[in-house]
């Protein structure tokens, strides 16, 4: 045993000697360019941050005092949370309006995005039509939801109608991309098999494509629903769409009532938590 281990150690040492550095530096990364780009980006970000902090206009603000006051506010907000300007029933009613807003926009967006997603998936549709849809949808996604709502507010007036159209619009942009990529992921063989047996396009879509991707479609739709809920809260405040967001805005910006802000925040947090639990359950059930 002893001798054999020494022998192997010796061979190891020998092998170690065999690896000798010769000549110039040897590159091991696959592509040199990407690493340089990442380094450059990081450097620019760090430089910009440092420059930003050095040139802030701090006025005569006492930093420590400001921090302690803010912490005090947060403490009041979350420990002494209570409603004062609206009743609990009213708050729940408003919360349900916000939820309704997000459900409605998700359903509208999902229905339209399903069709557009099928038409823009590379394996199911004419590539020209697909590319046009993808380009339009990319543009819709690039413009923030708030801007769409304000754009539609020009014709529909500031309120729930503009909020629904604007929210649906952006959600369509998001879901078309998600859906079409899901469709593109499915095995082409299945489509080929049904095509070879004489099935029509719609039959292939409903008998093979959608059953194969249903769980992912559900997961994406629910994820967008969660996003829509958050945006619907913000839109209640920003675009006067109504719902709990408007009460939050009134409590914070009009009555300066941090306790009410705290209570409403808890309510929204509660809903978000429930949605998260449901979405995790859906994914676990459907994906396996």
């Amino acid at each position: 045993m002893e001798s054999s281990s020494t022998i192997s150690l010796n061979t190891l040492k020998k092998k170690d000697d065999a690896i000798k550095y010769s000549g110039k530096k040897i590159r091991i990364a696959a592509v040199g360019g990407s690493q340089t780009a990442i380094n450059m980006t990081l450097f620019v970000l760090v430089a910009a941050t440092v420059y930003g902090f050095l040139t802030f206009d701090y006025k005569s603000m006492d930093f420590l005092r400001a921090v302690s006051l803010t912490l005090g506010n947060i403490k009041t907000m979350f420990i002494e949370a209570r409603l004062s300007h609206i009743t609990l029933v009213e708050a729940f009613k408003e919360l349900s309006i916000t939820l309704g807003l997000s459900i409605l926009t998700t359903i509208i967006a999902a229905a339209i995005a399903l069709i557009l997603g099928l038409l823009s998936a590379r394996n199911l549709s004419n590539p020209k039509i697909g590319n046009v849809i993808k380009a339009v949808v990319a543009f819709i996604r690039a413009v923030p939801t708030v801007l769409w709502i304000l754009i539609f507010a020009v014709s529909a007036g500031l309120g729930s109608v503009a909020a629904i159209i604007g929210l649906s619009f952006h959600a369509i942009g998001y879901l078309v991309k998600a859906y079409s990529e899901t469709f593109e992921e499915i095995d082409y063989g299945v489509i080929e098999a049904l095509k070879a047996s004489g099935a029509s396009w719609w039959q292939i879509v409903f008998q093979a494509v959608i059953p194969s991707s249903a769980s992912y479609l559900m997961a994406w739709t629910f994820m967008r629903f969660e996003i829509n809920f958050m945006v619907a809260v913000a839109m209640g405040a920003a675009a006067g769409a109504g719902g709990i967001g408007f009460d939050l805005f009134m409590a914070g910006g009009f009555y300066f009532d941090v306790r009410e802000v705290g209570f409403i925040t808890y309510m929204i947090l509660g809903v978000a938590l429930v949605l998260e639990v449901i979405s995790t359950n859906i994914k676990n059930k459907l994906l396996y």
Binding site: L194, A199, S200, Q203, F206, S212
Partner: peptide, 26 residues
């Protein structure tokens, strides 16, 4: 090239899609 998420019998019946109207097949 079967639809893995559907049952065996559903996959077999896919062979009849060519004989059906679009709506019934869908």
């Amino acid at each position: 090239n079967l639809v893995n998420r559907l049952s065996v019998i559903e996959n077999v019946l896919h062979g009849r899609l060519g004989y059906k109207s679009s709506i019934k097949g869908v």
